[in-house]
């Protein structure tokens, strides 16, 4: 007797929970490459889901920003551990989502896991590299220290469904920001599985929130949201009907920090996420606080 398929209904990840979209909508997700086949129905998030996610991220911010750097590093490392134990699932999903060979998918998943470890290591080191003691002409210690910007919205890369996603999210949260992430519109399945990995790791609820859906529909609401402090527009490259210039203009209303997509002018391109990234993504979501302190004798 043949078994009935257990088909999964994918949901959003907001505040550590997996709610359905407030709108009740979902959309079909297909595999990439040759032999386009139906993969899943993903939740089609709405502006209200984005609003709820921002609220969850705001609520999680004090706890996460106040955690010690050491603790945040451990939490990020734990994500790598949990991903490692679901490696086969990730490989299969990346392969289907991106239409690559098994070997290539295997390498991508390894790189994604390693990226968590790489950023985890930075948690208690970036402050020394990006901040420090400034030489001043007076009897003062003058210290610059980087601090988290706050709630960061991120458009995840459209093509690199897992490695790109991790490369965008990890630098946001390692510094103590909380994130509202719009997953790749056409390739959301690895992102949802990452959310399941996050939910079973030590990442506190609300620190990373993940919305699947139409980028062009939800992104403007995040860009104009006054309670979002920064926005990463990496995923505007190759997104349908998305003009990153308009998003940046909307973001100006409350002076959000904006990380522009790679490329020149309107021609946004998705960067290659394979090489070791450097600190520019981490630095984009930090505020430098400078303190003057009298030296005394």
């Amino acid at each position: 007797m043949s078994r009935v398929d257990v088909r999964k209904t994918y949901k959003l990840f907001i505040g550590g929970k997996f709610p359905r979209s407030e709108s009740g909508r979902s959309y079909e997700v297909f595999s990439a490459g040759r032999g386009r086949r139906f993969l899943a129905n993903a939740a089609q998030g709405s502006r209200k889901d984005a609003r709820d996610a921002v609220r969850a991220a705001r609520a999680a911010l004090p706890g996460w920003a106040g955690a010690t750097a050491y603790n945040r590093g451990q939490v990020l490392y734990r994500v790598a551990e949990v991903m490692e134990s679901r490696r086969t699932q990730f490989v299969a999903e990346v392969q289907a989502a991106e239409g690559v060979t098994a070997a290539r998918a295997e390498a991508t998943v390894s790189a994604a896991i390693d990226r968590w470890v790489w950023y985890a290591g930075w948690s208690d080191k970036y402050a020394q590299v990006l901040g420090g003691l400034n030489p001043v002409a007076g009897p003062y210690f003058d210290i610059s220290a980087p601090e988290p910007t706050g709630v960061v919205a991120a458009l995840a890369p459209q093509r690199s469904s897992l490695l790109g996603l991790v490369s965008v999210v990890a630098p946001i949260v390692v510094a103590g920001n909380t994130a509202v992430v719009l997953a790749s519109e056409e390739r959301p399945v690895p992102a949802i599985t990452l959310a399941e990995a996050l939910a079973t790791s030590d990442v506190p609820g609300g620190v990373i929130n993940l919305i699947t859906g139409r980028t062009a529909e939800v992104a403007p609401w995040l860009a104009s949201h006054l309670d979002v402090n920064a926005i990463d527009l990496t995923g505007a490259a190759d997104a349908q009907d998305v003009s990153w210039g308009e998003l940046e203009a909307a973001a100006a209303e409350n002076l959000k920090r904006v990380l522009r997509p790679a490329g020149s002018d309107e021609q946004a391109v998705e960067p290659d996420f394979a090489p070791v990234p450097g600190l520019h993504r981490l630095e984009a979501f930090l505020e430098t606080k400078t303190v003057w302190h009298p030296k005394g004798r």
Partner: peptide, 14 residues
């Protein structure tokens, strides 16, 4: 009220 007036979500900073 802000949201209705401006069309953008507001936040507790305001």
């Amino acid at each position: 009220r802000h949201k209705l007036a401006t069309g953008a979500y507001s936040g507790p900073d305001y």
